[in-house]
């Protein structure tokens, strides 16, 4: 009797805590697994001959891979390849921008801000109070030919003529993505930097390392997990973004991203299978990035445990 109590007690407790995962698992099944399967059913389905709407193929035995095959051909060597490469370039540059701007900010707030930390955190979150679209619309006004940005640059004699920032320039899109997603980058990085044990940094200094050496040999390596997490959180939505470039370049073909092609195929044409196939290709690409992130994180965890 006593032995039975000893064994069932922990088991019951384990089941109790495990039950906490039920809502999360249910959520994932309902809004990820089922959703992705629905996308697959459309991508590998057919189109109603009269209405041209999607006829999803729920049975995998009936899947038709023609649309996916066409999309893959176009991604690897066709016009969609150009769009994928451009999207990758925009995201990479925007991520670099986030790191250059975001890391010092996160570092300062986490390690150096002292009593002002709370206020600075509020200021960092402040952009979230305004809709992303509204912020992008505001930038289109600021960046237009007679906008404030050109006025200021001319006032400072940094340019003689107003520059057309909205002229389908890649750097305007990169700026918009960097600006828009910067708070998403800073906050997770901040939480990692803030948790670094100060005694490790002090030990480095005590052993004769300069400030820079301490940063590069202690702070930076310890912040890599936060850097990775912040990068993943930032680039995943960036890859699917289609409104930043739409707003900032008014639909210039020079700045078309994958998200724009998906939007066009799903909302503007009679080829939903192509749009859904593009969604799957992009998901597969993002899955590779995510898998690399998970692999790196796990490896770091194991190294830390040794």
């Amino acid at each position: 009797m006593t032995a039975a109590l000893v064994t069932t007690g922990p088991r019951r407790r384990t089941r109790f805590w495990a039950s906490f995962a039920v809502p999360g698992v249910g959520w994932l099944i309902a809004f990820f697994v089922v959703s992705v399967y629905a996308v697959m059913a459309v991508a590998f389905g057919t189109v109603d001959p009269v209405l041209r709407t999607a006829v999803p193929a729920w049975n995998p035995l009936q899947w038709d891979f023609a649309a996916m095959s066409d999309v893959l051909d176009r991604v690897f060597g066709g016009d969609l390849g150009t769009v994928f490469v451009r999207t990758f370039r925009f995201v990479a540059l925007s991520l670099a921008g986030c790191i250059l701007v975001g890391y010092p900010v996160a570092y300062y707030v986490a390690r150096k801000a002292g009593p002002r930390r709370g206020l600075l955190l509020v200021l960092l979150v402040l952009p979230f109070w305004i809709s992303y679209l509204m912020r992008m619309l505001a930038w289109t006004n600021l960046l237009q030919l007679d906008g404030i940005v050109n006025d200021v640059l001319q006032f400072l004699h940094l340019q003689d003529e107003p520059h057309n920032w909205l002229d389908g320039n890649w750097y305007t899109v990169v700026f918009g993505l960097t600006y828009g997603y910067l708070p998403f980058f800073i906050l997770p990085l901040y939480s990692t930097l803030e948790r670094i044990d100060g005694r490790l940094i002090e030990a480095g200094r005590d052993l004769g390392a300069s400030s820079m050496q301490t940063f590069f040999r202690i702070t930076l390596p310890l912040s890599v997990p936060g850097l990775m997490a912040a990068s993943v959180i930032t680039i995943l939505p960036m890859f699917g973004d289609y409104y930043t470039n739409t707003y900032l370049t008014s639909g210039s073909p020079k700045t078309e991203m994958v998200g724009n092609q998906i939007e066009n195929y799903l909302l503007g044409t009679s080829q939903p299978q192509t749009g859904a196939s593009l969604v799957l290709v992009l998901m597969a690409f993002l899955f590779v990035l995510m898998a690399y992130y998970l692999y790196t994180t796990l490896r770091q965890q194991r190294m830390a445990e040794r």
Partner: peptide, 26 residues
């Protein structure tokens, strides 16, 4: 209206909508 569809990141929303309803066509 299109731009307001922020929740449709990666365009997954519309294929799901298109997957809803009858499989038998028109």
């Amino acid at each position: 209206a299109r731009s307001a569809q922020l929740g449709v990141l990666l365009g997954a929303g519309i294929p799901i909508l298109q997957a809803c309803g009858s499989d038998s066509g028109s």
